[in-house]
Design a protein around this nucleic acid. Structure first.
Lengths: 202, 202
DNA sequence: AAACAATAGATTGTTAACAATAGCCAGTTG
DNA sequence: CAACTGGCTATTGTTAACAATCTATTGTTT
């Protein structure tokens, strides 16, 4: 996940693209996705496409009915939102507490760089990239604390939640909140980090 | 999920079988699963098998490395267990509170029947079935409260947790705990239901 | 005209052959 | 003797054709 080898499988590339389209609203709710059309779009056969659709269904972004194809899932019912927020906070607080005092300079510069890119993405109004970087920032903690394993449990929540608020905070607030988390980590102050996190998740 | 049509896709049948094998310990950690062998075992081609492996990887029961096949995942690190227990309780408490006062006789008799089967499975020492029925009991709440959507978020946690304790409680304790939840629901006492739930999850 | 049945088209589910890749073992070289 | 290169085998990744299923339309019947 955070190793040097930047090779990404065809499947993951397609999955990332479709995920982005759904989260950004390019693909609207209930849109039916046809395997053949997607295969043509990405220049592969239907096999890998089916893999991707299955994957995204497991993540909750798509819903699939037997022999009836898959379509873009509706945003989760708002009644679920408080629950999902709680769980995100549970997981990410756990992560922050776990990794506090274990980060080195390389980790910090990775996060700093992420925030710089985030700032730039805001300036260029590239909101797809904003979302991507935002998620990457949080994923870093989760991965550090619980590895691929915990990331797999955590990811569906964040993806599903993102379907609800297409509109993001103002740039300044978002950057500040993330910077708050990062600063607290630098000071080995996990309590403040969690506090900053809670301000960020809503 | 709980509708009459009992038709289950080939994919799901195979997935259920493999899941059971992993949770029950028939398939031990780090066992490498070969697509061709599985295809032969289940009498299908490699296509559906690949789908299943991808699905179970998303659930965390398997891990997959590019071009290197999939193998049975190790049980989650014990440091994650408190977190996972919390989240299960979060979700299932939410579910119990949500559905309290909404259940009808049909629901209750479904749950009663489940407990009867559970008792029988214990008597016959069919622990695979015990696990299955236990999970079904809890899934009922979660589905009622949040539909397929919430089930998808919840399921990976329960599967992953089940990898840790192969050994189940004694029959009596397990039945009693579930009966406690059911009784509280019948009395529309969601508070007691949650309390009984917390006793059950550990 | 409304309801039902049959048919045609489109779409997914499955299969088997083909291509690419990783791991392993032998043979070679310093 | 250790380390490396090369090819071989086993396994996964991909493809395109075929089978099964669903949707919609059209035609028939009452």
């Amino acid at each position: 996940m955070f190793d040097n080898n930047a090779i990404v499988s065809v499947r993951d590339q397609i999955a990332n693209q479709l995920r982005a389209d759904i989260i950004n609203g390019t693909l609207i709710e209930n849109t039916k996705l046809k395997e053949h059309a997607l295969a043509e779009r990405f220049g592969v056969s239907r096999g890998p496409i089916r893999d991707v659709l299955l994957q995204l269904s497991k993540e909750g972004l798509l819903v699939s009915k037997n022999n009836c194809g898959v379509s873009v899932n509706t945003a989760p019912d708002t009644s679920l939102q408080p629950l999902m927020i709680n769980i995100r906070i549970d997981i990410e607080s756990f992560a922050l507490k776990t990794i506090a005092n274990t980060l080195d300079d390389k980790d910090f510069s990775y996060l700093e760089e992420l925030l710089l890119k985030l700032q730039k993405a805001f300036e260029q109004q590239d909101y797809a990239l904003v979302t991507d970087l935002d998620i990457s920032f949080h994923r870093f903690f989760v991965y550090k604390a619980g590895g691929e394993d915990l990331v797999n449990l955590w990811q569906p929540f964040i993806y599903r939640m993102r379907m609800n608020y297409k509109r993001l905070d103002t740039a300044d607030a978002c950057i500040d909140e993330h910077q708050g988390i990062l600063n607290a980590l630098k000071n080995n102050d996990s309590k403040s980090a969690v506090k900053a996190l809670k301000a960020n998740i809503k």
